[in-house]
Design a protein around this nucleic acid. Structure first.
Length: 875
RNA sequence: GGGAGAUUAGCGCAGUUGGUAGAGUACCUGCCUUACAAGCAGAGGGUCAUAGGUUCGAGUCCUAUAUCUCCCACCA
């Protein structure tokens, strides 16, 4: 028995448990049931263990679950692998914050203790994330759940690192890199965010060595002047042509530096003179290299100035800047200071300014990799939906630089590089070597650094399946089918997965990428941890149920478009779930009043054939839409089929039959109704899995999740067209009744003009008499040969119809109504005339369309004429 | 500075090869009709941001402009 109303809170947990206990999330191949089944695999973008999931994750995972459930019911051998990401820097930042509250620091704690804390953190938040995913209904295979830092994934990382090192793709070197003085680690280019900052442009006088005056240099970073190796001008700048080669005195530290020329310098910016500080600026580094200058480091790793800066040593760079500018002013070496906006490079985790610094780090050579990434797109191995994202992906790969993969952090994959203290030999090994393979010394230390967190995520499509071991999973499920993810990690993650999968596995890791839109709050702001406007899905689910949330996320939002989340929308959409439930209650009711029989599809009436046709159409369209990853439209189709066609029409059509006095008619009508309804549950299961499963269990002894997807017995063209006509007749009757103010409870007569309706039409009307009576409160249908034109007339595809004047009269109303109709017709006639009377249209538009428009035109003219006549006769 | 997207009914949105603008919600009218008032039936409401262009025909294609959003970026 279905409950009076559906209470998701009491049901969902139990249903999920039932699915898990029955191993419903397992691929068929686990139990050798997948003979000849196509595989369908999704790897879940592993959420960071830094916190908990918000609605954005819910959208992402609902989309994946929708696809997985759909494909599972379609008979695919489906696998959805869940997992979490250790999020090296992000988690470390969080742990350090929490240590601070205890008065601790990571240094005080020591590496081993710190890592212990990190694992505890993982247990806590990783566990919470899994709970959230289960609450949402995600049908992923938890036995295959992976963590980027677990033993198997560590093994994958070691193997890939060693492979790429041996092939020369991974190298160590001292280069200018992005350094976060707050997190005290190197960052990759992708981890640097640029924010606009109001700053200044300082014009500093650099005196000539020959005391012939000074040259004015414009800079945004006065404090880096200690590291200047030269000053550059554009070779074509007439102002400075004769100055090239002369020497300047670098103020404060009084060092001679030359004036050089380089095309990099823009004549029109500032004074056209640039100070060159190779150790602390990426452009300057290149210029310095071109002209053979050694970079001079002037900063410590914590962002303070180093000993090279004399009295400014150990001052924070910004404090130094302030004091230095004061000193320069006092020396009359500041020409002027202009306000200036510049993009400031900041750390994507702590949001503090990052510094370009010279540092010895590990890098991955990216040029070949990028070509692999581009090849995936060029050779159509990879399709990104929506298509525009492809450009973003391509653009990043075209401008790629080597990837700095080492981080001066503790929480992460420790780099498997070992250094011999005796001979300086470097070894990269999967297993900790006990002696140096060159000199035999036992004095060996492992590199203290860890890998960029995105290194392990880049291996996700094959590390989750068991690489480097040649597992069955890897054989069966790689490459995977679709990746569903957010736009902001295209570079961090998607591009790197493609490159490394192609490099290591020789294949693109997935053939399609579906990019979800960004979830915003009800004010339109992006939901994120930093804005603190994230909503916990569990909070919403406890209030409205997981199905409501899922439906709200998938319904009415263009796939890939941004999505504005609001509880009001959930309230609106939840009505649909209620509707589904109530139609189930109706089925239960009528079944209770009959003895159930097996469905006999040879005994379908015109209405049954119509609904089966509609079901057929709906499924066809859904298949096509999901193939194109147009989840939004697919859900729309389901929605309107269920609500409009099934609930609003078919249920009403079926009533005369399911309540029929004839036991056989009644039993078969119920069987058909049940069949359609169970198909609807199948249709909807991927969106709203819990309630559909619950209702299904009420009518069958099987589990819905395991059923094959909805199917229809076929498409009946004639009957479908007939019912469409009946529906428009019903609408016309209702509309006419209402416009004459005929109260709904009044039973009136429908009159058909025999001379103006085809025999076929009369048959259809006859067959639909019961339904018409039920749905429009028609007492009887009179078929007549002649009828007084004073009666109320209306026309639809089936022919001319009338209501008896004495049953509906209201002359004034009718006059009003006719005038209104004529107005409507006039405007349509005008539009049609503009086409039909246009020789160009007639000549160039498709013939079929021209004919159609002409016919419609004729029809309107006739209708209008008869209405005008009627208006004249109206007394 | 470069690039991408958005602009459609009061609101938040959909609109798949160009062919007379759509659903939800809100509002209005009438209904507690035996699945559902979280409902049913019906009505109103849009120069599809603006200006041009291509076309017989443009929300849809092209070119500008405006406003908003996002991404990328080393002009010191």
């Amino acid at each position: 028995m279905l409950d009076k109303t559906y209470e998701p809170q009491n049901k969902e947990k139990l249903i999920y448990k039932k699915w898990e206990e029955n191993h419903c999330f397992k691929p068929l191949s686990d139990s050798n049931k997948s003979i000849n089944r196509e595989n369908f695999t999704i790897i879940m973008p592993p959420p960071n263990i830094t916190g908990q999931l918000h609605i954005g994750h819910a959208l992402n995972n609902t989309t994946q679950d929708f696809l997985i459930r759909f494909k599972r019911m379609k008979g695919y051998n489906t696998l959805w692998i869940p997992g979490t990401d250790h999020a090296s820097i992000a988690t470390e930042v969080k742990i350090i914050e929490s240590l601070k509250k205890e008065g601790l620091s990571k240094e005080k704690l020591g590496r081993d203790e710190f890592l212990k804390r990190a694992w505890e953190w993982n247990d806590k938040f990783g566990g919470r994330i899994k709970l959230q995913l289960k609450t949402l209904g995600c049908s992923c295979d938890w036995d295959r759940c992976a963590f980027t830092m677990d033993e198997k994934r560590q093994k994958s990382v070691l193997h890939v690192f060693k492979t790429l090192y041996d092939e020369g793709y991974i190298y160590r070197g001292e280069k200018l890199i992005n350094w976060c003085p707050t997190c005290r680690t190197a960052l990759s280019d992708a981890e640097v965010e640029h924010v606009d900052e109001n700053s200044s442009l300082w014009y500093i006088r650099y005196p000539y060595a020959d005391k012939s005056g000074y040259l004015v240099v414009a800079t945004t970073r006065p404090e880096t002047m200690f590291g200047d190796v030269c000053v550059a001008v554009n070779p074509n700048d007439k102002r400075y042509k004769d100055k090239i080669g002369k020497e300047l005195i670098l103020p404060i530290i009084n060092k001679k530096i030359p004036i050089i020329s380089d095309d990099y310098v823009e004549k029109d910016f500032g004074t056209g003179v640039v100070k060159i500080t190779p150790a602390h600026d990426f452009n300057d580094f290149e210029v310095g290299k071109r002209h053979g200058f050694e970079p001079i480091k002037i900063m410590n790793l914590d962002g303070t100035m180093n000993d090279y800066c004399g009295k400014y040593a150990n001052l924070d760079r910004y404090v130094c800047r302030k004091q230095l500018v004061e000193e320069l002013k006092s020396l009359d070496l500041i020409e002027k200071i202009e306000p200036y906006n510049l993009p400031k490079a900041t750390c994507y985790r702590c949001h503090n300014a990052v510094e370009p610094m010279m540092s010895k780090q590990w890098f991955m050579k990216m040029q070949d990799m990028a070509n692999l990434g581009l090849e995936a797109i060029d050779k159509n191995e990879l399709e990104i939906v929506p298509n525009r994202v492809q450009k973003i992906y391509r653009n990043w790969l075209v401008n790629i630089k080597d990837w700095c993969i080492s981080r001066q952090l503790w929480w992460g994959h420790r780099i498997p590089a070992y250094y011999c203290k005796n001979c300086g030999n470097t070894m990269v090994e999967i297993h900790n070597p006990s002696v140096c393979d060159k000199c035999g010394s036992k004095d060996i230390t492992q590199d203290p650094d860890v890998l960029d967190t995105w290194f392990s995520s880049a291996l996700w499509p094959f590390s989750t399946l068991g690489y480097p071991d040649k597992t069955d999973d890897l054989k069966t499920f790689f490459p995977t089918s679709i990746l569903v993810t957010a736009q902001d990690i295209i570079f961090f993650w998607v591009a790197r997965m493609v490159m490394l999968s192609k490099k290591i596995m020789g294949k693109t890791p997935f053939s399609k990428v579906l990019i979800n839109g960004i979830v915003r709050d009800d004010e339109g702001k992006k939901m994120s941890k930093s804005s603190n406007n994230g909503v916990d899905p569990i909070e919403i689910i406890e209030k409205y149920g997981a199905d409501s949330l899922r439906l709200s996320l998938l319904f009415g939002n263009g796939t890939g478009n941004d999505f504005r989340f609001s509880e009001e929308k959930i309230l609106e959409d939840r009505k649909f779930i209620n509707k589904v439930f109530n139609s189930g209650k109706f089925l239960e009711l009528v079944l209770s009043q009959t003895t159930e029989v097996k469905l006999d599809t040879t005994k379908l009436n015109i209405f049954d054939k119509w609904i089966y046709s509609k079901l057929f159409e709906t499924i066809e369209e859904i298949n096509k839409l999901i193939d194109n990853l147009d989840v939004c439209q697919a859900v729309n189709k389901m929605y309107s089929f269920v609500w409009d066609e099934f609930c609003n029409y078919y249920l009403e059509f079926s009533k005369p039959y399911v309540y029929s006095d004839d036991q056989n008619t009644r039993a078969n009508a119920c069987a058909i109704l049940k069949d359609i309804y169970l198909n609807i549950l199948k249709l909807l299961h991927p969106i709203i899995p819990f309630i559909t499963e619950d209702i299904f269990s009420n009518f069958t002894n099987e589990m819905l999740i395991n059923q094959s997807y909805a199917s229809s017995i076929g498409y009946f063209k004639k009957e479908t067209e007939d019912i469409e006509k009946i529906i428009s007749l019903i609408q016309k009757i209702r509309e006419t009744r209402l416009s004459y103010n005929v109260i709904p409870s009044k039973r009136i007569t429908l009159v058909v003009n025999k001379n103006n309706a085809s025999k076929d039409s009369l048959n259809i009307i006859d067959e639909s008499r019961l339904v018409l009576s039920k749905m429009t409160n028609i007492e009887k249908v009179d078929v007549v040969e002649n009828i007084d034109s004073e009666n109320v007339k209306f026309v639809c595809e089936l022919g001319e119809f009338y209501f008896y004047k004495n049953e509906v009269v209201d002359t004034e109303k009718e006059r009003e109504k006719i005038n209104k109709d004529i107005d409507k017709m006039n405007s349509e006639i005008k539009i049609l005339e503009s086409r039909i009377l246009n020789p160009n249209f007639v000549a160039r538009a498709p013939q079929q369309l021209v004919e159609k428009e002409k016919a419609r035109y004729e029809y309107l003219l006739n209708s209008k004429k008869s209405l005008e006549e009627k208006l004249k006769n109206l007394k």
